[in-house]
Amino acid sequence: MNPLLIIMLILLIVSGLGLIVFILLHSGKGTGISDMIASSVYSTQTGTSIVEKNLDRITIIFAIIFLVSLIILMFVYPQGTIAQN
Rank of each mutant, 00 (worst) to 15 (best):
I33A: 08
G32I: 00
V41A: 15
G32V: 00
I13P: 00
I37Q: 03
S34N: 09
I37F: 13
G16P: 01
L9I: 10
S40P: 02
I58F: 05
G47L: 08
R57G: 14
G32E: 02
I61P: 01
T46M: 13
I58H: 05
E52D: 15
F22Y: 11
V41C: 05
S15Q: 00
I37K: 02
R57T: 13
I37Y: 04
G18E: 06
L17P: 03
V51N: 05
L25G: 02
S40I: 11
I20T: 14
K29Y: 11
G32Y: 00
I60C: 05
M36P: 03
L12I: 08
S40C: 09
E52G: 05
E52H: 14
R57P: 06
T59V: 12
K29A: 08
S43P: 07
L24P: 01
R57Q: 07
T44K: 12
S40V: 08
I23S: 11
I61Y: 08
T44D: 14
V41W: 10
G47H: 10
L9T: 03
L11H: 00
M8R: 09
I33P: 00
T59K: 07
L11W: 02
L55P: 03
L24D: 00
G28K: 14
I37P: 01
T48Q: 07
L17Y: 08
Q45D: 12
V41H: 00
I10R: 04
